[in-house]
Design a protein around this nucleic acid. Structure first.
Length: 860
RNA sequence: GCCAACGUGGUGGAAUUGGUAGACACGCCAGCCUUAGGAGCUGGUGCCGCAAGGUGUGGGGGUUCGAGUCCCCCCGUUGGCACCA
């Protein structure tokens, strides 16, 4: 190791411990990465806005997964600056959230103090990596100066009728004492903690994201995002074309309406189903069925989402005793109540067509309901024993007979509209966004409730509505949110017109602050507006947004929604916030488990004779690659890596591991490898014995080492190209090729070395700055221009020509790339290694690709 | 079940438009240097074979002079969705 503690005092090894803090201090002192604010200065250069998904500052601190994306964006930001762009590259904190509130309870400290402590730790860890953030633009969503504007944007939503209170069935999580958005719940548990969630009806704030469903869907097309993410959002929005159909019910004048995507199968509807929560259920139920229906409804309501999901294999239901009229056939069909019909989708009622819907088929079979086929495949026969769900041709369907499915849908839609029995309709899977939480550590709503049961928005000039000090962060004994504990001085407000009311006690969800932080970075200190329009015009949209795939729907959909509302308010000039999105892959690590399933620390295990064992006991352990987590003892802390190898090695390894988008395992041996590379770069410049410049560095022109010069130009080209394409791993391997060659070269022209250091600097900025200084430069390397390359020097004029016989490589020779076909063919046939394979055989075909290969096809 | 992505040496991974499979690195082997080294340097390293040669990108088939790359089927891994009518 070459750290000063372990080395002899005289040596002049690569001392990252000394030089990294030195350069970080220098960058800070010179404000090297400050992004200009002055509009005139900005206009002189093109802009590049490169954004990281800001972290939630947890108590656990950073792990090596966080800096993966941050390193990638930092390298690109540094490159773009050197290429003459104004770069906006900020960092901040998604600082509201439940964990701080829980820690506050545990430690008896205010959540703001917990948050500050965590933020300080995150900032310290991030700074150690030498990232080129403009720290003067740091934002913190829990800072009143920030959430003032979150509340301000909420008022905009409220003004436009996009925020409303509703009595809705919600996902209540007893363990957390709060509700969760639909998106936060999966299989009946909270996705983050696994705590069970149950259904409750409560009055909640909702945001009308469904009003934007069509635009959120349509505008995806123009975005440079991974196709998979766009597909997930499309699916989440879930647009489907269909029709509403009204069914008459005896004794219930208004009847009920169903939604179907297959109006063409109406003739095959043999029963209907209402969700247990459907409002018509009590009135429609026949006296004879009352007891059974009530029991069923009660049971369904009591089931948690988890139970409903688990029981989904066996469909259950109960006959309501009521009969509805199939509007197409005029037949009476039974109305059933079953929880396989969802209350929140469509109208909460369906027409069941068991012949053409697998779910209805299953239910009909179980309860002995009739099945009537009304669609047949265009060719062949419908499968036996299951529903035929594909498109085909309508049969036994009156006016639809003989029509292909698409045509039949259209015809039925028009017929329903003409007869006043229904209408064509588009349905979205997307639901309105449940926007309130029963927590303390979030933005208070700027809303008061008045004595007359109405409510009013607080005036804009009263913002921010700051959080009150309270003694406990739990809900009250009667189940009201923590803010109900606030003193009257906070909770009772007087409106400008003199009316008095009490503050709303819910708070906003964590997503609120992250919906617009990218806009605040543009103008973070503005006290009069969330951002200046001029700055927004210049910087937006975000050119590149890098973050984890876990935000594919939630954050990215919510932020797009807010952005579109802001667009409609005339506050932003782009329809979409994030033009290009890139997801970095998760970093995994080896974990070790003994026969009893207990996890062991990696340092407690070792390899013996090809098998992994516990060092102490010699007992066999299983070694696997898994997601990093504390409980698996496989978390790698960047602080430890930096202490051992330095920030530059850490940065380089994060990028050298493999393609940024890929999931990949962390391997300490790999860090050692890139560290060795950096040490080689060091020794290229510094004589280890004397600490002076290496003797082989010469003032001679680059042309004095033509081969090395050629490699340099290729390297500069490749590093530049690969970096903007986010292919950092191949850029690094090319730099390794250069260093290997430069190490074995007799002399090293200064001109070549300096170009290389510029190219290296975005990747290993501390080392590059140090060597730049040792070469006699007083100015910062990060302020230098990106090196130019000569395309003529990157092109090889000679190439190895491969000679194949029947597609197999039999020989190879060197030749000019420009050599003609005949000449190549002549040389190939004369090649000694090739001759034995073609002698005495007839050449039936000759393929010549100049600069590449010759393929001779022989017969016999 | 549906949708998407991905399967290349002992390991992480390279490979324009189909044209030398395995760049670069880890590990391993041999040697050199050193009082010493988880240091440095040189060479080797897909597999089988003494060699000539054969074989090889999850499996099977196809297109082509030529396939890691294109097409079809299957298997596996990961992620997302999952009664959305």
């Amino acid at each position: 190791m070459s750290s000063p503690e372990s080395g002899v005092p005289e040596n002049h090894d690569y001392d990252f411990v000394g030089l990294e803090p030195k350069w970080q201090a220098r960058w800070e002192a010179e404000k090297a990465f400050r992004t200009p604010d002055d509009p005139a200065e900005l206009k002189a250069k093109p802009k590049y806005y490169i954004l990281d998904m800001f972290p939630y500052p947890s108590g656990a601190g950073l792990h090596v997964g966080h800096p993966e994306g941050y390193t990638a964006t930092d390298i690109l930001a540094r490159l773009k600056r050197m290429q003459g762009f104004n770069v906006l590259h900020p960092m901040g904190w998604d600082a509201f959230g439940l964990p701080a509130e829980r820690a506050a309870e545990r430690e008896n400290l205010h959540p703001s103090l917990i948050t500050k402590r965590n933020v300080d730790n995150f900032r310290r860890q991030i700074r150690r990596l030498g990232f080129s953030y403009d720290w003067e633009r740091e934002v913190d969503t829990s800072d009143p100066a920030y959430y003032r504007w979150t509340q301000w944007i909420f008022l905009k939503l409220h003004e436009r009728g996009l925020a409303y209170l509703a009595e809705v069935p919600v996902n209540w999580c007893p363990a957390l004492g709060t509700v969760l958005a639909n998106e936060e719940v999966k299989d009946g548990v909270y996705v983050e903690t696994g705590d069970p969630v149950e259904r409750r009806t409560m009055t909640q704030w909702m945001l009308r994201i469904t009003a934007y469903a069509e635009r959120l869907l349509a505008d995806l097309d123009g975005l440079d995002w991974p196709e998979g993410i766009k597909e997930m959002q499309r699916h989440w929005i879930g647009k489907s074309d269909g029709a509403e159909v009204r069914f008459e019910v005896e004794g219930v004048p208004e009847g009920f309406t169903v939604f179907t995507t297959r109006p063409d199968t109406l003739f095959g509807c043999t029963y209907c189903v209402l969700a247990p929560e459907h409002p018509l259920v009590p009135r429609l139920t026949a006296p004879s069925a009352k007891a059974a229906v009530e029991a069923y409804v009660r049971e369904a309501r009591g089931k948690s989402d988890l139970a409903r999901t688990e029981l989904s294999k066996e469909k259950t239901g109960v006959f309501s005793g009521a009969m509805a009229t199939n509007p197409a056939t005029g037949e009476k069909v039974p109305v059933w109540i079953a929880d396989y019909v969802l209350t929140g989708y469509g109208t909460g009622a369906i027409m069941a067509v068991p012949a053409h819907d697998a779910r209805d088929w299953e239910f009909a079979k179980r309860y002995g309901l009739p099945i009537r086929s009304v669609v047949e495949p265009a060719t062949g026969k419908a499968p036996e024993g299951k529903a035929f769900e594909e498109e085909g041709v309508a049969v036994h369907s009156g006016l639809l007979d003989g029509l292909p499915t698409a045509k039949a849908k259209e015809t039925m839609g028009a017929w329903l509209e003409e007869k006043g029995l229904g209408k064509r309709r588009v349905q979205y899977r997307l639901r309105d966004w449940l926007f309130s939480r029963q927590r303390y550590w979030g933005e208070p709503f700027p809303i008061v409730h008045l004595a007359d049961k109405t409510m009013a928005a607080l005036p804009v000039d009263s913002l921010p509505i700051t959080l009150p000090m309270i003694d406990e962060y739990k809900p009250t004994a009667d189940g009201r949110p923590p803010l109900a504990r606030a003193p009257e001085a906070w909770s009772v407000r007087t409106l400008p017109d003199g009316r008095r009311g009490t503050m709303e006690t819910n708070t906003m969800p964590q997503w609120a602050g992250s919906c617009w932080y990218y806009l605040r970075y543009i103008d973070p200190k503005n006290a009069r507006a969330p951002w200046a329009s001029e700055a927004e015009q210049y910087w937006m949209p975000v050119d590149l947004y890098v973050g984890g795939v876990e935000h594919a729907v939630l954050h990215l959909l919510y932020a797009r929604f807010w952005h579109k509302v802001l667009f409609d308010c005339g506050l932003v000039h782009t329809r979409e916030p994030f033009q290009k999105l890139f997801n970095q892959g998760m970093i995994l690590a080896h974990s070790y488990r003994d026969a009893r399933g207990k996890y062991l620390h990696p340092h407690e295990c070792e390899e013996r004779g090809g098998a992994w064992v516990a060092s102490k006991t010699g007992e066999a352990v299983e070694r696997q690659i898994e997601k990093m987590s504390k409980s698996r003892y496989n978390v790698v802390n960047p602080d430890d890596v930096i202490a051992q190898y330095g920030a530059d090695s850490m940065r380089l390894y994060e990028m050298f591991m493999g393609p940024l988008e890929q999931v990949k395992p962390w391997q300490m041996d790999g860090v050692e490898g890139v560290f060795r590379f950096l040490a080689r770069v060091w020794r290229l410049v510094v004589d280890q014995k004397t600490g002076m410049l290496h003797g082989k560095i010469t003032p001679a022109p680059a042309s004095s080492e033509p081969e090395l010069r050629k490699t340099l130009h290729k390297t500069v080209k490749k590093v530049g190209e690969d970096t903007v394409e986010l292919r950092f791993n191949t850029a690094i391997s090319q730099m390794m090729v250069f260093v290997n060659e430069a190490t074995s070269a007799k002399t090293l022209p200064r001109e070549i070395l300096e170009s290389f250091l510029r190219a290296l600097s975005p990747y290993a900025p501390h080392l590059a700055e140090e060597l730049w200084e040792r070469l006699g430069h007083a100015t910062l390397l990060c302020k230098e221009a990106w090196p130019a390359f000569d395309p003529a020097l990157c092109a090889e004029d000679r190439a190895t020509i491969v000679v194949q016989v029947n597609g197999k490589v039999r020989g190879r020779f060197e030749a000019l790339k420009t050599l003609g076909q005949e000449e190549l063919l002549r040389m190939a046939k004369a090649d000694a290694a090739v001759l034995p394979w073609i002698q005495g055989k007839k050449i039936v075909k000759e393929i010549v690709v100049p600069g590449k290969l010759v393929n001779l096809v022989v017969a016999g």
